[in-house]
Write a protein that binds this DNA or RNA. Sequence first.
DNA 1: CTGAGTATT
Length: 758
Amino acid sequence: MSEEPVTKKLKADDGASKSNPYLAHLENEKDSTVSNENATGISGIIRHESTAAQANKAEDGPLNPFNGKSLSQKYFDILKVRRNLPVHLQRDEFLKMFQSTQIMVFVGETGSGKTTQIPQFVAYDDLPHIQGKQIACTQPRRVAAMSVAKRVADEMDVKLGEEVGYSIRFEDKTSSNTFLKYMTDGMLLREAMTDPLLQRYSCIILDEAHERTLSTDILMGLIKQVASRRPDLKIIVMSATLDAEKFQSYFNDAPLLAVPGRTHPVEIYYTPEYQRDYLEAAIRTVLQIHASEAEGDILLFLTGEEEIEDACRKISLEADELIRESNCGPLSVYPLYGSLPPSQQQKIFDPAPAPFTPGGAPGRKVVVGTNIAETSLTIDGIVYVVDPGFSKQKVYNPRIRVESLLVAPISKASAQQRAGRAGRTRPGKCFRLYTEDAFKKELNEQSYPEILRSNLANTVLELKKLGIDDLVHFDFMDPPAPETMMRALEELNFLGCIDDDGELTPLGRMASEFPLDPMLAVMLIKSPEFYCSNEILSITALLSVPNVFVRPNNARKAADEMKGVFSHPDGDHLTLLNVYHAFKSPEAQLNPSQWCYDHFLSLRSLQSADNVRFQLKRIMERNDLSLVSTPFEDKNYYNNIRKSLLSGYFMQVAKRMSSRKGYITVKDNQEVLIHPSTVIAQDSDWVLYNEFVLTTKNYIRTVTAIKPEWLLELAPAYYDIEAFKKGNVDVRMGLEAAKAKADRLKKSDSKRSKASYK
DNA sequence: CTGAGTATT
């Protein structure tokens, strides 16, 4: 149960082998390992017994200890910088702890160098290359995995993809030589599905654990289990916050090492009273900083695209006035949010404008961003942060099975992170637009981890595939609500992914291989039965990427008209299919970027859909799922596709209400409206929908017309009419009518077939 | 008659 005795037992064995002649072969094995180490050039270093002095000596060259090549001048230049990092002072302390325990927690604030240095410290002591093992270091984001791997390859003077590499979706930059691998946490989770004990690793480092992404949380639960079965596996959990005790106690009271960061002090200012209109207060604060503070750029945190664009306009207008009336310097304002095209995101790195006259009032830039600027993007030169204290957060309501986004107060940890953005290059200031009292009493310590705010259907399927049978007792750091788990199990059961005993079915096992939500995965797996797997593959890919339709504020009408060119009378899914086919036509491929611009489509989304499609196609081929199409001339071409969509989405169906405007969802009797972005020729009585969005009203979005008979044909268990007796009148009557119609057809069919026998 | 905070496989 407890991990501690395991390490002790190993030590005892070591000792025992020295005195016990029957265990002498163990000593010999160890000796041969040592000579192996010498062969690779890390002289004198014995695995898990090294010191900082030995590592420093090896690092000093003249040859690269890992590949025997001579070290470059660049290497020595970087080495000087590395030795000045705060972590370096504690290398011995780190090694002692690493060597004496299986699991440790490492806390390092920003600027400590933990992400780049700790994996290298491990490499010099764990010597993965001589045992044919690897060190994994996980990151929540792809860009981080890539850029850190690049940096560390430079630091170790090796070619990226050789000794040091990275692995992210669509890109595996590793080779048989790779012993240090940066990867996304989602990627390690995928690997665990085929290698549940993570045998290829001798050490796993979970970085940025405080962010508590869905993948990190599942990995922590998994790794805690693996640790007790693999005493040889070392684990380091790295975090940036002071939340370390929680990680320590979760990992059986693992020891903690804390390293100071290196950032500049940030002065915090609070408002004396509550600000009713935080947007107005934010704009006012930005302008005050510009008018009265010393040189330095400003970062303002807001919640979403619309709010940001609005604030940018207002700030620019008011700044012009300040310039005219108060001799202020020039002010450039940049919006920053995820859906902004990369070229525009790049602009935030432009230098601030120069003063109008040399030595005059300073020129400045203001970046107005979402919390993308809190963790994902770092802008150097920010000296002033304006923090209204809100962000959009995902919430999941298991009762109506809907995920939605709500503007909510941030946590203390988030506020601290935001303030830190002002101290990256020199001392800064952070203006919090709430009272100190509110900060102390009203903000949560930490944000809710994602696992408590999501639909877990996909997570439960992953856990089942990972071999975790008892989900109720699975050791989550923060266990999700039982109702959320129940909903997930129920959904998977209806889909046929798990049976009534909670066991994974062959369909479920296959579905777990696809990087898709279960409903999409099931739809794709069943599509060959409907002779349209090629088409469903395209639609699935398009549903897995950000919206392909672009609708600029100044050209809404033109964009809507262009969308009309692709529209299909039966709804959005087939419209998406039309878009994809048009995009792949020779005409569009001649100049895809221009074609997308002309047709108000997102090139980025379409290209990424192409990537996803290719990946899904390979998984289908691996599972012997055939790629077929109904002949286009066949009258059932589109019907087959619509039925195939329904085979995965039969739980997301709505029926038009007879007494009122709008629709009612079949599963939860929710009144909904069809989202205005939907293209569908005539309002159909029955529709399936991809998404339920909760905003100003309840909307269903990405909708396709279906026939009620199909529900009985494709999901008879779910559409058992008895179960709807107490449900909505419209739904029940509709299903009964469909049943009667189906029965009539069956009768006449059997008559006909009897007739044909004569 | 109109929405997407940020990630990820």
